[in-house]
């Protein structure tokens, strides 16, 4: 069990982080017209590195699931706007849309890798 979960763990974590980032970017897009809203984002590279380094959380009972990091510990940062608008809003539609589509693409890529690993395991189990 442990071997299998560690085989898939990295992609699972990456997927979780990508989906968190999607939600943050969606919040930015939702607030595109709100005065004084500051667009936020998280740096995927730093976060994934930090979460891998931290390793699994300590478990105190046999029935606990070993998870790698407490959810929501990502460090959010404010976006540095290229053309700040007069109403204090730092959401730039073009920037957010590009970041969002890139993140979606990377989410799908990670999912594809994860699927590949699962398929590999399945064929090993079936002995094909």
């Amino acid at each position: 069990m442990n071997k299998i979960s560690s085989h898939l763990d990295f992609y699972g974590q990456a997927l979780r982080l990508r989906s968190r980032r999607n939600e943050v970017l969606a919040s930015n897009i939702a607030n595109a017209a709100t005065p004084n809203f500051k667009a936020r984002d998280l740096d995927f590279d730093t976060e994934i590195r930090r979460q891998i380094k931290q390793g699994p959380l300590q478990t105190t009972d046999q029935q606990h699931f070993p998870t790698n990091v407490a959810p929501g510990s990502e460090k959010m940062m404010y976006r540095d706007p290229i053309n700040p608008s007069l109403d204090g809003n730092t959401v730039e539609m073009g920037v957010e849309q590009m970041e969002f589509s890139e993140n979606v693409m990377r989410y799908q890529t990670t999912l594809q890798f994860l699927n590949g690993r699962i398929t590999g395991l399945m064929s090993a189990i079936r002995g094909e």
Binding site: R20, S27, N31, T34, R40, G72
Partner: peptide
């Protein structure tokens, strides 16, 4: 008048809407 609404669990989810 638009106003940002942050999720109660903002620290955990990072969600906000308007």
């Amino acid at each position: 008048v638009f106003e940002t609404k942050f999720a109660d669990a903002l620290k955990r989810t990072g969600l906000s809407t308007v």
